[in-house]
Structures are given as C-alpha cells and as structure tokens.
Design a protein around this nucleic acid. Structure first.
Lengths: 345, 345
DNA sequence: TCGTTTTTCTAGAACGATTTAGAAGAACGA
DNA sequence: TCGTTCTTCTAAATCGTTCTAGAAAAACGA
C-alpha cells in the first residue's frame, strides 16, 4: 500500500513537510530551484497534490458553495427556470474558481443528522425556492454557513436576491381583471398531490412562501374574482397537465388558469390542446418566469431575470467586493396570445 | 470565540469524544438515554454536528461525486442534452444520499495545482464530454478517483457509458446519402473559433474524440460526399448560427448541414430562416441528441437516451451492486422534415 | 566590519473528527 | 458463586494538511 502523502514527498526530497506545502500553496516562499525539485519528485512518486479534505480541514476553506434546491434534484433540471438560475450562479462560481455542490434535500433522517446539508463541505450556500421553515435552513444557520436565498425571508439580516412577488403577480392579476376574468384557477407546485390525484388547497396549505405571496398579489389585483388553488403535484409539465385536467373536466370551469411557473402553465396548455380549447379565446392561460419555451408557445407570463438572479447570488456569496446583501430584481409582464377577454356566457 | 466542537460537547456532557461521535454515527453503540442527552446538549450549545471536512479526512468518504463538464460550466446549462445527463445522474445520486460537485474546468494554473479538480473532495467522478487527453483526467487518475466517462476511452480498464458514435453517425450519413447529398458541412464545437470568426478545420483539429468518431461515421456512410468541417465556437445556439452563416454566405453552399449537436443545428436553423431557406427543401439540416426542442423544430436527428446515460453513470459510480463497467447505449435515427432530397441543379 | 534586513527553510502544534482495541460493569446460565 | 458473554463506554492513535513563530543563512547598507 503506497499512500503517498506530503510527508512522503518531503522525506524523499529531504525537506520539511511545510516546505512541500509551500511549494504548492505559496510559491514565493521558497527558491524556484527547490520548488521545481519538489514538484518533480512529487510527480515521480505519483503524488497528486495536497489532499482535498485535509486541506479543507486545516484551512477552513472548502472551495465549494452548496446549492439547495426545491424538492428532488432531478425535478430541478426539468425546469429551465431552475437551470437558468444555476447557469448564472455557475458563471460566477467559475470566475472565482469555486465548485458548485448540488445537495439533495431528502427529508429523511434529519434528527439523526446524516443529511447532505450536514455532510457537505461548503463555504457558503445558495438557497433556491426552499420553503420557509425547512429544517435544512436551520442546519445551515447552525453551521454558521453564509447563505443567500432567492426568497425574501423573515429575518432582516438574511441575504436574498428576489423579486417583489406580490407586485409581480399583481401586474398579471390586473391584466386578467381588465380582461374580465372572475373565475380563476391557480396551479401550484405541491408535494401533497405528488402521489396521484390533484388536490384543491387553501392558501395556508400552499407552503412555499413565494407561491403564497404570488397568490396574494393576484387576490389584491382581482378583489372581485374567485381564486381556486389547485395542484397536480411537483413542479413539472405532467403536474400542470394533471391539475388542468382536474379543473377542465369539473363542473365549474374557470375562465382563466394561472400557472405559478411556466412549466405548470405549459402542462395546462397540453390539457387544453387535447380538449380542443384555444388559449386566449376559450380560456385564458398565464404563467410565471418566461422560460424560452413560453415565447414559443405564445404564453402570457411574468418575466424574471433568472440568470441575473443566479449571478447576483453568486456575487454576494463569493465576491468580497460586493457589499449588497439584499437585492430586488425587476419583473415584467409579457402579454402574449394565451390571454384574452373572458368569454361572455 | 466559541468554536463548538465534538470535544466541547463531550466535556459538557461528561463523556469521551468517541461517545459523542458514536451518538451521531453509530446510535446502537450507546444507550438511548445517553444519546438523547448528548444530542440535547449539542443542540443547546449550538453544535451543528460533526464537521464535514474533518469527517471526510478521517473516514475517507466525502459523500459527493464530481462532475466534469466540457468547456465552461455555464455553457453546459444552455444545452438541454447536458442538463438531461445531469438530471439522470442526480436521480441516482439522490437515491444514494450523495451530493453532486460541479467543477469548473478552467485550464489555467494546471501546473501550480490549484484547479478545482485537485481541490475537490470527491469519492468518484463523472466525466461528460471531456476531450481525450485533457489534463484533468490525468489528475483524477493520479488521485486514484474512480471515474466513468461518457466517451469510450483508449484504456480498456476505463469505465464508460457511451454510444457507438461511428455507427450512430453512419445511420444519419446513410440517410443523407440516400437523399442524394454530396456536399455536406459538419458543424462542430471548437474552442478555436470561440473568439469571433468561424473556422474551417481538418479532422485532426477537431479535438473531441466523440466528434471525431461521428465525422468518421459520416464519412464511412457517405464515401462519395465531400465533407467540410466548420466551427462557429463553443456548443451554443449562437455558434451554430455563426458557423452556418459563414457557410451559407460563401461561394460553394453545401446541400446539407449536420450539426454534431442539436444546439448547433438549431443555430443553423436560425441562419436558414433569416435567409428564407426552407429546411428539407432548399437545404437539408440534421442534428444529434434529440433534445426536446428538436422535435418542435422538426429537426432530423440521432436520438440518444441521455437521461439513461446519466443514470447508468450514477449506478456504476455509486451502486456497489452494479458490476457492469462498460455500457453501450442504443441510438435511433429520427427523421423529421428538416431533411429531404438534395436539390438538383 | 558589523548590525540589520531579507530570503529560505523548519519544528511542532493545531484542525476536528473516527477508529481500534480494550476496560468496566451488568446480565446470564448453571 | 464463578466464569462467560453482552452492553456501554473510553484512551490514544491517526487522517494529511496548514499555520505560527522562529532559526539559519544570505544579502545589504554604511
């Protein structure tokens, strides 16, 4: 068994371990000749450089920021919105030669303490659409790991990069109200419905803070409308489809459906297609996020600068020069063909 | 300065550090009463559980697998194909409560030794479309980290999950040959052209093993055709656009363009649109991968089961029960409207 | 020439846990 | 009652670095 360590190399060259360490980390602390000799010997011995864990332990820097995602990791990748965030974050991470640690958020065994959030060797964390009271957040706080969330939290000292959810949703609500919609169904991401059949929820049951705020925004802008909240499962096309089916095949059809993400709205769009309903004429449909597919589908939606959001989170986390701790990003209502006047009856 | 460690807790409870460690890791090694007492005291002191780096150092397990991506990380997220791979991999990682470490592949400072690949605390690595002789691969090998590649390597003992690149491309080549195409341009991902103007390359200059193999496959199936290799930059829509512009605006237009990824082909599609060219009639266009957008665009392409590829890589890396080390995945030629008979002149 | 600064290198103590081997006491069967 | 087997807990070594303080040698200024 070899087990070539820094010590091995040091002995082979005939210097102290500190010197070998310096050869790797502080090249200006030793003569070039010696450094070359050390590096050469290291190569010869098959030494792959300082061990990552040991270095992390001693120096206190892991060289990675953690990313905490809603729900299952696999789901995150099926939403271009989440991917866009990641792309922005990755851009900054790359700039600072930092890795991104994607941690699964499995809720089992939290008490025992062997979740990824606890195991993870990270210097900081980006929190993407994680519901307010999630235990993982407490764990992070406990570990003293600086974190930036994509939702405005309750604590005034928490960092975030977010949008004004209420206002953004209100813009959309006004648009729909002006078009005469009074019967509206809001499609949300919800774990309860993940198993099989869609469920109708109350505002309290919604869970995600941002979803709740968006619904409040809609309510604010459409005081005369009846809002129903429905979920067909996690944030995925199929969930939107199921949720919309449930609604469209029921007795009291709404005149408008709002997906709280474009992905959900696109699922609803499929359900409409199957039933021969034309969006914007027979029924209005709107989404949230403005992912690329939304424009192709002619979906009315609320655009958020998601990649910028990712970049901003990255900057706060990694750039010492960045002093901003809380950032409100702009949103924009994008009206397309999927929304139109409510049909008279 | 607090610095609550395992020792602190041990002292507070009045037991040895080992016992506290066991309370977290081996609950059956101590009485339930004591364990509860330890956990309670830990909570009280604000101890967040065993330090990740220290644990990783001592136990030799980091609880994370690294992911090595072509080019810039940010680029990876703009290709649904890469994202699909990640989704499959994440699914398995989640199952094994393992995190995913996305490492930037910046090529600077390789000699010095402070690249992410060296810094990273990982147990294994997934290698996605990294060119054959890349230094990062040597580093991994040196560190003794088990790795699985998405390309068949040269070494017989390297693990991989791949497709038969030559055969897959040959299928497409036959299709085009049958349609009478003799003048073909192949669009490839290439760093040389990243700066600005598109370049025409020889087969030797292509670099990525899989790209090279695909071109060979095309050549094999179209022995009578003249193949030109062109790149407009990295793997992105804009590069495909630039590459196609270069080709379409030149003297000798081809009758068919093959993008070695759908993303590149979609870029070419845009260039065609601008010029009023109808795909499949004025000029044939084909891609590779079959990403979701390809079907929407009517793009002829070669489908690979990318999510399965990710899952398979994950299994080999994480599942001790998996014995398979080398896996060939099936591919399928998907003919859509973007390819048609070569126009006579 | 002699003190002073700079360069180059080293000793030894952390960093915060896990592991191995084994001690002390309780429980057990005869 | 005595030996044996569990159960419960501990002491000490170890993982592979980096860091702090400082020593030895070289270079410098006057």
């Amino acid at each position: 068994m070899p087990g070539v360590t820094l010590k091995t190399v040091a002995k082979a060259v005939g210097v102290s371990p500190s010197t070998v360490s310096n050869a790797y980390n502080k090249p200006d602390q030793l003569s070039t000749a010696l450094r070359e000799r050390i590096l050469a010997t290291a190569r010869e011995l098959g030494y792959a450089g300082p061990d990552a864990s040991a270095r992390a332990l001693r120096s206190g820097k892991a060289g990675a920021v953690g990313v905490l995602f809603t729900d299952k990791l696999a789901y995150a990748f099926s939403d271009p919105y989440a991917v866009g965030f990641l792309a922005g974050l990755a851009e900054v991470a790359e700039e600072f030669a930092t890795s991104l640690l994607l941690m699964p958020l499995s809720s089992t065994d939290i008490a025992g303490g062997s979740t990824a959030v606890q195991q993870a060797a990270i210097d900081a964390a980006a929190i993407f659409c994680v519901p307010g009271g999630h235990p993982a957040l407490d764990i992070l706080a406990n570990r003293g790991i600086p974190a930036v969330s994509t939702d405005r939290g309750d604590h005034p000292d928490l960092s975030w990069v977010a949008i004004d959810e209420v206002e953004a949703a209100a813009q959309l609500g006004e648009h729909l109200a002006r078009l005469g919609h009074r019967e509206v169904v809001v499609l949300v991401d919800n774990a309860q419905a993940a198993g099989g059949r869609p469920v109708e929820l109350t505002l309290d049951e919604v869970g995600y803070t941002d979803c709740e705020l968006r619904i409040r925004g809609l309510q604010k802008a459409m005081p005369d409308a009846r809002l129903r909240i429905v979920s067909g499962g996690h944030n995925a096309i199929a969930s939107g489809l199921r949720g919309a089916e449930f609604v469209l095949d029921s007795q009291n059809r709404p005149t408008a459906i709002v997906g709280l993400s474009d992905i959900l709205a696109l699922g609803a769009l499929e359900a409409m297609k199957v039933r021969g309903l034309t969006p914007g004429r027979d029924l209005s449909l709107a989404g949230f996020d403005d992912i690329p597919a939304a424009s192709a589908a002619g979906l009315t939606t609320v655009r958020q600068p998601i990649k910028d959001k990712g970049r901003a989170v990255g900057r706060i986390l990694l750039d010492p020069a960045s002093t901003e701790r809380q950032l409100l990003m702009p949103t924009q209502l994008i009206v397309r063909s999927s929304s139109g006047p409510a049909p008279k009856h």
